[in-house]
Amino acid sequence: MSTEITTPITQTEYTKEKKVGEGTYAVVYLGTKQSTGRQIAVKEIKTSEFKDGLDMSAIREVKYLQEIQHDNVIELVDIFMAYDNLNLVLEFLPSDLEVIIKDRSILFTPADIKSWMLMTLRGVHHCHRNFILHRDLKPNNLLLSPDGVIKVADFGLARAVPSPHEMLTSNVVTRWYRAPELLFGAKHYTSAIDIWSVGVIFAELMLRIPYLPGQNDIDQMEVTFRALGTPTDKEWPEVSSFGSYNKLQIYPPPSIDELRKRFIAASENALNFMCGMLTMNPKKRWNAIECLESEYFKEMPPPSDPSEIKIK
């Protein structure tokens, strides 16, 4: 079995060589694990923000990454404390899907997209079968290893799959990737919110521009429903009882022809797969298993070998 994270606080074991990113609660450095020479990333949690002790995002990240060992989820290598700062040692992942989507010099094929979707969904499925919701899936959080493997990262917003009557905050997920039940401010939701995000990411990979780029929370509903149709009580019982429903413009769902026009390169199975993930009613939306079993993954072309996708 795996060895546990060792307690000796060997800060000298890990060097921080270059600052590669800064978020609201952490600074990320590129470094080396001295004993093995392995490249690693060190996420240093800012202590100045610690007025309530250890930061909640850091606690969530530690809590969930400790439970997940999967090829498609970022590896938590070690944790140490140095100068009153909590440091998470993570595997080094040089790129992410956002960078790749935005870099016009990179060309990728439908088979590459399929490979990325497959790896993403395997990672998401593993989270879900461990009863963990990610709650912030977006291209920027789908990192790529040097050999092209997708790793789901950033568990700072993750939580356990809630019990049936648990009340939750709907203020999760970066706006463009937010499922309709979250836009409506639902007090309870399920792993279906992550699948919606994957659906939006899939669309973005095909279009190479954000699919549902709302300017603000109100506009996000407008943009989402204009593209995919406003849900009605028929397909989603009691959707009209959400407070914000009445102010909505009712758009019809897009016809298959409209979708074909928007996603020119997509096969029927690819469109079906996307629509499964972008189903308005969270109960009818495909779950990770349904997605993985989709015809899309069985038809030609087969998913690219990750190490052969040219991203540089």
Binding site: M1, S2, T3, E4, I5, Q69, H70, D71, E75, L76, V77, D78, L118, R122, H125, H126, H128, R129, F131, V161, P164, T190, S191, K283, N287, A288, I289, L292, E293, F297, K298, P303
Partner: peptide, 26 residues
């Protein structure tokens, strides 16, 4: 965790008898 066990799904389609991701209602 110098030697973590990695859960590797060898097949793209993994059929599980029980769907762990959804509650009993679904």
């Amino acid at each position: 965790m110098s030697n973590p066990i990695v859960m590797h799904d060898e097949v793209p389609v993994e059929t599980t008898s029980v769907d762990l991701t959804t509650g009993p209602e679904e």
